[in-house]
Design a protein around this nucleic acid. Structure first.
Lengths: 170, 170
DNA sequence: AAGAATATGTCAGTATTGTTGACATTCCAA
DNA sequence: TTGGAATGTCAACAATACTGACATATTCTT
């Protein structure tokens, strides 16, 4: 059997991290991410959309009026890849693409009512799972969860993330 | 600003979970998973492999002698998809495919020395990030992290996961 | 005003990873 | 001995990513 995480090590240094313990965390991420995407995926499949559409809808709702470039940075994909997804969302009337007023080269992206409804439907099932997990685990676990996830991000992504979640002390 | 997680709610029930708090957790998963896969992805790209190869190597090392069917269940893909990946790994001499002794229809998968080396190279960088995150977050956060991830899995995947990590009380 | 730089969009080609469906082989078990 | 399970393989297709090249409109800089 594996040795437990030593309770002697509290605070900042966590010694005795065996490869196996770390590997279990890695597998936990893998399996949890599967669960994390499972519910939206089922809805998306019905509507012939994919995860890429979900991500676009999510971040446009999150930052209404965001520019294409900003979205590219957050999503970390190429403009060609994003454009394909945005094209279908715009054509299907879920996303509005408006020329910028200050800088007319920019396109500002917002969700239409239909887009908002779609995003909500996806967000709801994903939040439901999240809520259930949070409730089952308890507030202290949730805090630790968020702390570890944040520490796992690339520094640049962490900045993006912190910019989005300002004011949330969960 | 968002209200904090109420310290009154400790233990099992966590009320006051706003959509925004849950959404932040969702984004944390998204950004953290990007970080989680970033390091192995860089190595894989050099060698013209993908994440699918990494996952196969990981779980074969984890359960040496596992059957194709077992791997299919764990990975949650079709046999055609897995077979394509296994084919290249076998042809490249990273995975051994041996006929079962008890049931000769089954194929038992194990890593060759080259496969073990490759898997270790990938696991090392992924564990390094994990270790850094764990250290930065501290043991209690790690415990919470694992608890929430486990609660987020589909029940069936959780069973798979618990089967693999038996004895780890981290 | 000319030219550089920026933001966006688009076309073409390619790779990875997933899917279905069909079919063959091998072999265990009733 | 036959039915079904485990495995492998072929073919076609779809989603999502990539690179590279190029076009257009706009803004900034000199």
């Amino acid at each position: 059997m594996t040795d437990q995480t030593s309770p002697r090590e509290t605070g900042q240094s966590l010694l005795y991290l065996t490869d196996e313990q770390l590997g279990n965390g890695i597998e936990a991420m893998f399996f949890a991410y599967r669960g994390f995407t499972a519910d939206p995926d089922r809805i998306l499949a019905e509507k012939s959309y994919g995860r890429a559409h979900h991500r676009a809808l999510h971040f446009i709702r999150r930052s209404p009026g965001t520019t294409v470039n900003n979205l590219l940075t957050i999503l970390g994909v190429t403009k060609q890849s994003l454009n394909r997804v945005l094209r279908t969302l715009i054509d299907d009337g879920l996303v509005l693409n408006t020329v910028g007023t200050r800088d007319r080269r920019e396109r500002h992206l917002t969700l239409t009512d239909a887009g908002l409804a779609m995003e909500k439907q996806l967000a709801d099932v994903q939040r439901n799972r999240m809520r259930a997990a949070y409730r089952a685990a308890g507030p202290e676990a949730v805090h630790g969860f968020r702390t570890v996830l944040e520490a796992m991000m690339d520094p640049e992504l962490r900045r993006q993330y912190n910019g989005l979640t300002e004011g949330d002390t969960t």
